[in-house]
């Protein structure tokens, strides 16, 4: 499949994620949207990795172009996992205190 499809798909996922973060009020959903963004990036990186590999492969069979992007994806996954654990802990902590995961609830508390 042409590489553009992957890139467009990744871009769409990313946009959905961004839109979700900006419009949703439920902390968990916002959080899931953020994860969606990260995974869109993963997809995009892998697609680009293939793209650059294909480009380099045309001139050099032994090329290692594109490996670094896959490596990057690994790191994104690790960091995402760390973020998940911290983020969920924070959300649980909040839920235990105010019995809600609504972001706006906090703003209401302030006034």
């Amino acid at each position: 499949m042409p590489i553009q499809y992957y890139i467009i798909l990744a871009a769409c996922l990313f946009c959905i994620g961004v839109a979700g973060v900006l419009t949703r009020r439920n902390a968990i959903i916002v959080f899931m949207c953020i994860e969606l963004m990260l995974n869109a990036v993963n997809l995009m990186l892998v697609a680009f990795s293939k793209m650059h590999y294909a480009a380099a492969f045309a001139t050099d069979n032994a090329s290692t172009a594109g490996t670094d992007a896959q490596l990057f994806v690994f790191f994104i996954m690790v960091v995402a996992a760390a973020e998940v654990s911290v983020g969920l802990a924070i959300i649980v902590m909040m839920y235990r205190n105010i019995h809600s995961v609504d972001i706006n609830f906090l703003n209401r508390l302030k006034n």
């Binding site: 996954m77 760390a82 654990s85 802990a89």
Partner: peptide, 26 residues
């Protein structure tokens, strides 16, 4: 209703350690 936090903790620890395990594969 809110369940024992233990289960949640296990889930979080799983996420963390599983990702570390992934690094062993390559």
């Amino acid at each position: 209703q809110p369940m024992a936090i233990k289960y949640f903790l296990v889930a979080i620890l799983f996420v963390l350690f599983d990702v570390e395990v992934i690094f062993f594969y390559p």
